[in-house]
């Protein structure tokens, strides 16, 4: 059996949110009597993560992802259930846990913007009680791995977003954490930089065996990095499967896009769904458990086809389908 980096059992967290009746009257009323509504952000969540694994933990906005991460990192206290991160209970030993984990929140800066990346790394080294010699060695190692040479002495405020995120990740790796929590690390980045960040995360995982707990709305991140995916919605797990399985289940559906010489009149039939029909341009979904792609092409009449493209359903559609199904 694989060693576990994270074990979560029956985790729940409820928030109390103030509620006010609408309008002026409601405002007056709320002064004397405050109403609260309970929101179950996380509801009986159980899962575990192997050491060295890269896990995608995804879900629509408000699904409970961030709340879960915050409970795993000791920021929030769970109402119920138990959490063990590297064998430590975050609720009881938050400081001890801090030495074992690194966090990168794509939307929050943890670097000192007026200092250079180098000064920042030295700062984080001191925070994690690492001696100067070891920090220097570590900075050099990470500088090479994340290709920071060009801007390591430029104040962070003058860096591009891509450069800054690279530095954010390096800063969170200074103390050699066993687990890295990445919360939307590629948000706002251009495709080339995204790709670059993904490659670096992969390389880091391979070389240091760092467990990566990733949340992202970017399907590319999930597809390129993760072997396993957990989808949460309404605070509960709706899917916990390997990426391979997830794709396999949906792989029996193919998308056929065709450009026609002449207009064709097609209707939905068993195993074939028309997704788009613009006369000369067609997009259909073929359920290969019921009909073959060949059948679909025959329906279109091969002599009538100018161009054709057959593809799998994009992961993005698979995921949004799962989100919708759970509504």
């Amino acid at each position: 059996m694989n060693e576990k980096a994270i074990i979560v059992k029956n985790l729940s967290k409820t928030f109390r949110v103030k509620e006010k009746e609408k309008g002026f009257k409601g405002s007056i009323k709320s002064i004397f009597k405050t109403k609260y509504r309970e929101i179950k952000a996380v509801n009986d969540l159980s899962f575990d993560v192997d050491k060295g694994e890269i896990l995608a933990f995804i879900g629509p906005n408000g699904a409970g992802k961030s709340t879960t991460i915050k409970m795993l990192t000791g920021i929030l206290f769970p109402d119920q259930g138990t959490v063990e991160v590297m064998g430590i209970d975050p609720k009881k030993k938050r400081k001890k846990l801090a030495y074992e984990i690194g966090t990168v929140f794509g939307q929050k800066e943890q670097l000192w913007t007026h200092l250079t990346p180098y000064d920042n790394f030295k700062f984080f080294g001191a925070i994690y009680d690492i001696d100067d010699y070891t920090v220097e060695k570590r900075i050099k190692e990470l500088k090479d791995m994340f290709e920071l040479d060009e801007f390591i002495n430029t104040p962070v405020r003058n860096l591009s977003l891509g450069q800054r995120i690279r530095c954010e990740i390096v800063a969170s790796l200074i103390h050699k954490p066993k687990i890295l929590f990445l919360d939307e690390p590629t948000i706002g980045l251009d495709p080339v930089v995204k790709e670059n960040i993904r490659t670096l995360i992969k390389r880091m995982n391979k070389e240091y065996h760092t467990t990566v707990f990733l949340t992202s709305h970017d399907v590319g991140d999930i597809e390129k990095l993760c072997k396993r995916i957990i989808i949460v919605n309404h605070g509960q797990i709706v899917l916990d499967d390997s990426m391979e399985n997830l794709k396999y289940h949906y792989l029996n559906k193919k998308i056929v896009e065709a450009k026609m010489k002449e207009k064709v009149n097609l209707n939905d039939e068993d195993g074939i769904t028309i997704l788009k029909d613009k006369g000369y341009n067609l997009k259909i979904e073929v359920d290969t458990t019921k009909r073959s792609v060949g059948d679909a092409i025959k329906l279109l009449n091969p002599n009538n086809i100018i161009d054709i493209n057959i593809s799998n359903i994009p992961l993005e559609d698979i995921i949004s389908d799962i989100y919708k199904r759970d509504k």
Binding site: K70, T73, G74, I75, L76, R94, K95, L97, A98, Y99, I101, T103, F105, K108, Q110, I127, Y128, D129
Partner: peptide, 11 residues
């Protein structure tokens, strides 16, 4: 909620 990002540091 920014305080959260200071809570999970070892200080």
């Amino acid at each position: 909620g920014n305080i959260a990002y200071n809570i999970n540091k070892p200080y």
